[in-house]
Simulated assay, not measured.
Amino acid sequence: MTGDHERGPHHGRFVVVPAAYVFLLREGDTGAEVLLQLRQNTGYMDDYWAAAAAGHVERGETAYAAAQREAAEEIGVSEIDLEFVTAMHRTRGAEPIDERIDFFFTATRWRGEPQVLEPTKCADLRWFPLEGLPEPVVPHELVVLDGIRSGWVPAYSSFGFAQD
């Protein structure tokens, strides 16, 4: 008799996909600003503004290391002084996608000038005041940005579930 452990890499269980997000922050002329990218050609939330750097956590990699790697790969910054903000358990309700766990970080110090390194996926990279974000912003990311702007983000949140 075969057990669940012999069925393959997911052992017959549902999958939760981890991702790491980096919001670079700075003080601008009118207050705090965040660096956002305009997504394109990704198949997910194209033409929405999103975290300047974000991506899946790879097998054997911590969310912190993934945030550092994604920032280097997507916007060319390194030595990021990351501050953990929140973890968000996310789904799209009735749509048949894997559930997600998103780890959000902010940073106010890093090395290098942010620039678009993946022009096929990023149409624009721009600083915006937290008090004047562009539209549209990826909805679950907007929840976190609203929390950063207000000064309070829960350590854990959920998004897209029936009880939200």
Score class of each variant (00 low, 15 high):
51 A>S: 14
69 R>H: 07
20 A>I: 05
37 Q>H: 11
103 F>Q: 02
36 L>N: 10
10 H>V: 12
148 I>N: 09
80 I>G: 01
35 L>G: 06
26 R>H: 13
121 K>C: 00
47 D>I: 00
118 E>Y: 00
119 P>M: 07
153 V>T: 15
29 D>N: 07
43 G>L: 01
102 D>T: 00
86 T>N: 14
16 V>A: 05
45 M>Q: 12
66 A>W: 12
11 H>Q: 13
122 C>E: 02
78 S>R: 13
147 G>Y: 06
94 A>Y: 12
49 W>N: 03
148 I>D: 09
121 K>F: 08
91 T>K: 08
64 Y>K: 06
17 V>D: 08
139 P>H: 11
86 T>H: 11
82 L>N: 08
53 A>I: 03
116 V>K: 02
21 Y>V: 06
11 H>R: 09
139 P>M: 03
97 I>H: 03
87 A>L: 12
41 N>T: 11
7 R>A: 04
1 M>T: 14
58 E>S: 12
48 Y>E: 05
32 A>R: 14
12 G>R: 11
13 R>P: 00
140 H>G: 00
139 P>N: 13
8 G>W: 10
67 A>Q: 06
140 H>F: 09
131 E>L: 02
163 Q>G: 05
57 V>S: 13
83 E>R: 15
53 A>N: 07
79 E>D: 15
90 R>L: 08
66 A>M: 10
59 R>I: 13
68 Q>I: 12
127 W>F: 11
122 C>D: 04
147 G>I: 04
31 G>V: 03
76 G>L: 05
156 Y>Q: 13
152 W>C: 06
151 G>Q: 13
37 Q>C: 01
17 V>C: 01
60 G>L: 04
122 C>I: 15
79 E>R: 12
160 G>H: 06
159 F>Y: 15
27 E>D: 15
52 A>H: 07
16 V>S: 02
64 Y>E: 15
113 E>P: 00
88 M>W: 03
8 G>Y: 08
38 L>T: 04
22 V>P: 01
131 E>M: 00
39 R>N: 07
139 P>S: 14
74 E>M: 02
28 G>V: 13
2 T>A: 14
157 S>W: 07
84 F>N: 10
103 F>A: 10
126 R>C: 10
48 Y>D: 05
76 G>Q: 07
158 S>G: 07
